[in-house]
């Protein structure tokens, strides 16, 4: 494992925990897209089914279990514990426009036509677009709380670091996984506009608000 990959995993973990803490401490999930969080829970579930079939390393197993546990806890906080604070009126992205095409694509373009492999592929495609309901919500309300911006930034950094990891692995190991790379590129591009706003506004101490 190279440094990019490790830092990528850490920033992914940081993003997930940051969101959980934000909701827990403020007792509110205002401004958070429950739909994006459900999609991430689906992503982790579909991808980490190999927990039951394959042992890779203690690190690998622990991270997968933590990711799954955290994402389900987040969904539970949004839709059950702090349901009253959930901003459902602004969370109106149609998730079927993401789930159906990515599911079809996973059947058509995959490494191997087996159930687990198709589910893994589906999770990779779905992850690349799962943040769209959240970004849509931010654009609809025109702003995001600073901590929500940090969450989105850490999440964007994660896939960007994975891109460097893939360049590294291709260069030094001759390894590449085209499905992960293309989906990872799409995912990173979706964050670019947000990165720009984050650097020009949030880092200068301003709240992220979009021009009307």
């Amino acid at each position: 494992m190279n440094l990019f990959r490790f830092l990528g995993d850490l920033s992914h973990l940081l993003a997930i925990i940051l969101l959980l803490l934000k909701i827990w401490k403020s007792r509110s999930c205002a401004g958070i897209s429950g739909k994006s969080q459900v999609l991430f829970a689906v992503v982790f579930t579909a991808r980490y089914l190999d927990l039951f079939t394959n042992y890779i390393s203690l690190y690998n197993t622990c991270m997968k279990v933590v990711y799954i546990a955290c994402s389900f806890t987040t969904v539970w906080l949004i839709y059950s514990k702090f349901k009253a604070t959930y901003d459902g009126n602004h969370d109106t992205f149609r998730v079927e426009f993401l789930v159906v095409p990515t599911a079809i694509l996973a059947f058509l373009v995959n490494h191997d036509f087996t159930p687990l492999e198709i589910l893994w592929t589906f999770s990779i495609y779905l992850e690349s677009v799962a943040i769209l309901p959240q970004l849509f919500m931010v654009s609809k309300t025109g702003e995001a709380e600073t901590i929500t911006s940090h969450y989105l930034f850490a999440l964007g950094v994660y896939r960007t670091l994975y891109l460097f990891n893939w360049i590294w692995r291709y260069h030094f190991e001759g390894f590449f996984d085209l499905i992960a790379i293309v989906a990872g590129l799409v995912q990173t591009v979706l964050y670019c506009d947000f990165f720009y706003l984050y650097i020009t506004k949030v880092l200068k101490g301003k709240k992220l608000s979009l021009p009307a």
Binding site: M1, R5, D9, H12, L49, D50, T53, N54, I56, S57, N60, M63, K64, Y67, H111, D112, T114, P115, L116, E117, W120, Y162, N165, A180
Partner: peptide
């Protein structure tokens, strides 16, 4: 046919 190619990335 339930196996999956080994994947170490998360």
């Amino acid at each position: 046919a339930f196996e999956m190619m080994e994947k170490d990335e998360l």
